[in-house]
Amino acid sequence: MSDVMEFEGNQDNISTKTYLEEAVSQQEISSLASVVSHHSTPSSQPLGTGLEARGVHAWFGKHHALADVNLDFPAGTVTALIGPSGCGKSTFLRTLNRMHEFIPGAAMAGEVLLDGKDIYEPGTDVTKIRLKVGMVFQKPNPFPSMTIAENVLAGLKLAQLKAVNKDDLLEECLHRAGLWNEVKDRLKAHGGSLSGGQQQRLCIARALAVKPEVLLMDEPCSALDPGSTLKVEETVRQLIESVIVVIVTHNMQQAARVSDYTGFFLSDGGPGQLIETAPTSEIFSRPKDPRTEAYVTGRFG
C-alpha cells in the first residue's frame, strides 16, 4: 500500500515538465534505441508532443455514440477516463488508435493529433498509427498458439520490424510489465498457461515490445484479482517514463491511484460527452461540475 500512497501524494505537485525531467534518463532512451530499429525511430525521442483529440465524434451506424470530445494527453502522463457504462469512453479510446473503424458500421468526425499530425488524414498508414498507439484490452488475450516469449515478440513479427537483440527486448519488456521474475524460467510455456493477471501483464509486455508512444488500456483490470490489479497499476506508473498512458476504468480508486489527469464522460441516452477534465486530485477533491461530483462520490453510475 505504501507505494500507492506515494502515487497519490505525488499528484498534487506533479507538473508534467518536472516529472519528465526526473523520469527520463538519457541512458534509458539510448538503450531503447539500440534494441529496436524502428521505421521512424520514435525510441530516440520516445516522448513526442503528445496526443490530442479535437472535436471527436463517433457513430455506430446511425447511433451517435460520442460527441465533441476535446482532450489533451501530454507526454509523460497517465490519463484516466471514467464514467458510467455506455458513456462512450471505450469508444473514444478506440478512436485514438483507429480501432474504432474495425467495427462494421463505424463512423467518426474530428481530428486526433499524434505529434501534431492527424492520424485520420487520408493516406495515413493505419498500421503505423497502431504501432505508435498500442492497446491493452479488457480481457487478457494472449495469442493461444504462441509461447510466452513468442507472445511478447509477436508485434515485431506482425509489423515486420527488426529487433537487434530479441532476448534483451524480451527481458526488458517482461521487466517493465512486472512479469519477468514469474516467467523467466518458463518462457517456452504457452501464454494460456498463465493466470489471468499474468496474462494481462503478458499483454502489456506484448504491447510495449513495439515501443509505442501511447498505450491505451481499456479496463485492463476488470477481470483481475486485487493483487494482480496492484501489479498492473505499478506497471502503469513505471511506464510513464517513455509512454503516454490512457486508461479507461470503472474503478475510481484505480483512477485516483494511477492517473495524473482524469476525464469524466457522461451520456443521458444521447451521445456520450466529456463533462470535465482536470488533474486527478481535483476531480476527486473539488470537481467543478456537480455531475462529476455526484459520480465520484458514488451517487449514481
Binding site: F102, T127, K128, R130, G134, M135, F137, A207
Partner: peptide, 10 residues
C-alpha cells in the same frame, strides 16, 4: 485476438 493482432501494428 484479431483486434490484438491489428492493434500491434499488423
Amino acid at each position: 485476438l484479431r483486434e490484438a493482432g491489428v492493434a500491434l501494428g499488423g
